[in-house]
């Protein structure tokens, strides 16, 4: 090492890289690489999976190959799409109800010490109760329709959004609040101009997590408590010994989760323009 250093001059040079001289080209290249990775990594895993079937490393009585899933007749049946639509509707209703309540209560508890004192430990205790264990209670409360399913999703989403909203509101720096107070802002103005925008990036982190959780919960609820929807499809595949059906269901729910989380992220980017999303420094 030492010998090498001597051949070099003791000179540390800071020179422009492609990112500096031609940012457009650099960004294009970077995006290309990122897209390649985003598609390539799952792509090769799927290819490996398919190969596993081809060489019979995997038992095709119990498992379905990617090709079987994609070429499944099931995918061309209108029935499947109506199942998906049923599920998506449940998930969206549950997600919106849950996040609305979560943001609302999170905000209220974030600004009010008294409310925090009154509800914090109660909600934290409820938070840890496995929601699927509540199915009998929800059925008794909401009957046998879609309502108990939606309510279960909503409750699960609620807790994630509530916690992140509350801590986000409490975490807004005091200096920002004081600046508003010094201009004579009232409570509502402080909320509108300071607390809410200040908390928004963190609230969106919560919403993104909740979006994934909504899909988890959706499938879980439908597995146990539905005769239609993706979860029921997966369950039907198991009971009728049709792995293809099960795997079609699983693949679609994965895609659903991906799409939904992505949509929430896009929404966050639109609503929080001051916080650049990708803050990793450029490393060459």
């Amino acid at each position: 090492m030492k010998g090498e250093a001597q051949t070099d001059r003791d000179l540390l040079s800071r020179v422009p890289t492609l990112a500096d001289t031609n940012p457009r080209k650099y960004n294009k290249r970077r995006r290309l690489i990122e897209t390649f990775l985003a598609v390539g990594v799952p792509g090769s895993l799927i290819a490996l999976w398919q190969l596993g079937f081809h060489y019979e490393w995997i038992d095709n009585r119990f498992y379905a190959s990617p090709w079987e899933i994609v070429s499944s007749k099931k995918l061309r049946e209108a029935e499947l799409w109506s199942e998906i639509w049923t599920s998506v509707q449940r998930m969206l209703k549950g997600f919106f109800a849950g996040s609305l309540l979560g943001v609302l209560l999170g905000v209220l508890m974030g600004v009010s010490r008294l409310l925090r004192a009154a509800l914090d430990s109660l909600l934290t205790a409820l938070y840890t109760v496995p929601k699927l264990a509540l199915i009998p209670v929800f059925v008794t409360l909401f009957g046998f329709g879609d309502l108990p399913r939606i309510a279960l999703i909503a409750v699960t989403v609620f807790f994630f959004v509530w916690i992140s909203t509350m801590s986000a509101i409490m975490g807004v720096e005091d200096g920002y609040r004081e600046a508003a107070l010094s201009f004579g802002a009232n409570k509502w103005q402080i909320f509108r101009h300071v607390l809410f925008p200040g908390a928004l990036p963190q609230i969106f982190v919560g919403l993104r997590i909740a979006a994934g959780v909504a899909v988890l919960m959706l499938i879980g609820v439908e597995l146990v408590l539905a005769s239609d929807g993706l979860g029921a499809l997966i369950e039907k595949g198991r009971t009728l010994f049709l792995p293809e059906l099960t795997y079609v269901g699983i693949a679609i729910s994965a895609l659903l989760g991906l799409t939904f989380t992505y949509l929430v992220r896009i929404l966050g980017r639109v609503l929080v323009p001051w916080a650049p999303e990708d803050q990793t420094p450029n490393q060459n």
Binding site: A179, S182, A275
Partner: peptide, 17 residues
């Protein structure tokens, strides 16, 4: 409406505005 205003030691301006 605003008889007193303050310039803070650490700016206190809002990153979201």
């Amino acid at each position: 409406p605003t008889p007193i205003s303050m310039v803070f030691q650490d700016y206190g301006i809002y990153p979201w505005k």
